[in-house]
């Protein structure tokens, strides 16, 4: 790299940041690209461009930038964070979940594991929900196929029985009236079977089942959400790690007893975490309502997009 290029790249990056702050993402992206041409070894240039591309919804570009940034710097929380969002947007929830979990893990390892952790917890839940949605869609499709197949079998059975009756009538083995009656009977029988089958499928549909409340012991007393990474305090109460840390930063006391409580006194509650995971696996979908409308996108990610 010719001398001075690093400096030039830095200048271009700073200009890009100004545009980014003003919401001029196209200009920002262009300037970051120029910076990368000057210095392709700086992982931060790639994450900055990824963030601009995220705003422009250029998902593939985001993914490329994040992967290159991670190549240059392994423990790259921001890159994994942007990557997860892009992967979620291109409907790869499995990959997105892995990226989000990696980002969360990196985040909890850093010194200021705080408000970012809360954002990442929300993202992890969102990925899980997307994953569940896809599974659910497949399940409905498979189920519909199975129902169609079974109905078809019943119909074939019925038709061959009818054919048999008609044959006997032709051959004179059965009277015409007797044949008519028998056909009518078989028809009713067949219709009843189809009905029963449909009822059975409808009953097994979770949409017809009562939604279960998330039990209180799985719910974080601060956000009132089901927990994803519960930690236990000295008095035995558990809270979501990210939100409890938010509170401890302001006031290093136990939320219930007000006894002094330090962040490094928290311990993960592994059994409870597993219980939460299991509950979500079984009752997913409706447990986390991460509707996009609820969270204002810009403010939510704002503190992470410091460039």
């Amino acid at each position: 790299m010719p001398p001075g290029n690093e400096y030039a790249a830095e200048q271009l990056k700073n200009q890009g940041n100004v545009h980014f702050k003003n919401g001029e993402y196209e200009q920002a992206e262009a300037l970051y690209s120029q910076a990368i041409q000057k210095n392709s070894k700086n992982p931060l240039l790639f994450t900055n461009r990824a963030n601009a591309r995220l705003k422009l919804e250029k998902w593939d570009g985001v993914i490329d930038d994040c992967l290159r940034s991670i190549e240059l710097m392994k423990d790259n929380m921001k890159a994994y964070f942007y990557l997860a969002q892009a992967q979620l947007s291109v409907h790869h929830p499995n990959e997105a979940l892995t990226s989000a979990l990696t980002a969360y893990e990196l985040c909890t390892k850093t010194a200021q594991q705080t408000s970012n952790a809360a954002t990442l917890t929300a993202l992890v839940l969102k990925c899980k929900k997307a994953k569940w949605d896809i599974r659910e869609r497949d399940r409905i499709r498979r189920r519909a196929d199975l129902l169609a197949e079974l109905e078809q079998k019943l119909e074939l059975d019925y038709k061959s029985t009818i054919d048999g009756i008609e044959e006997s009538v032709e051959k004179g083995e059965k009277g015409r009236i007797e044949g008519q009656e028998e056909k009518q009977e078989r028809k009713l029988e067949w219709e009843k079977k189809v009905n029963d089958l449909r009822t059975a499928f409808a009953l097994s549909d979770p949409e017809h089942l009562q939604k279960r409340e998330v039990p209180d012991y799985l719910v974080d007393g601060i956000t009132f959400e089901i927990m994803h990474d519960p930690v236990v305090t000295r008095n035995g109460r558990s809270y979501e790690r990210a939100t409890l840390i938010e509170h401890l930063k302001r006031s290093p006391t136990d939320p219930l007893t007000r006894e002094p409580l330090m962040i490094d006194q928290l311990r993960p509650n592994i059994a409870l975490k597993e219980a939460c995971t299991e509950f979500m696996e079984q009752n997913s979908g409706w447990v986390y309502d991460c509707e996009d409308g609820e969270n204002d996108h810009d403010t939510r990610w704002a503190h992470l997009s410091s460039v």
């Binding site: 809360a118 929300a122 601060i222 956000t223 009132f224 959400e225 969270n295 939510r300």
Partner: peptide, 11 residues
């Protein structure tokens, strides 16, 4: 950050 969700649940 999570105020609206929490308040929704409280309500």
């Amino acid at each position: 950050m999570f105020a609206s969700k929490r308040l929704q649940k409280e309500l």
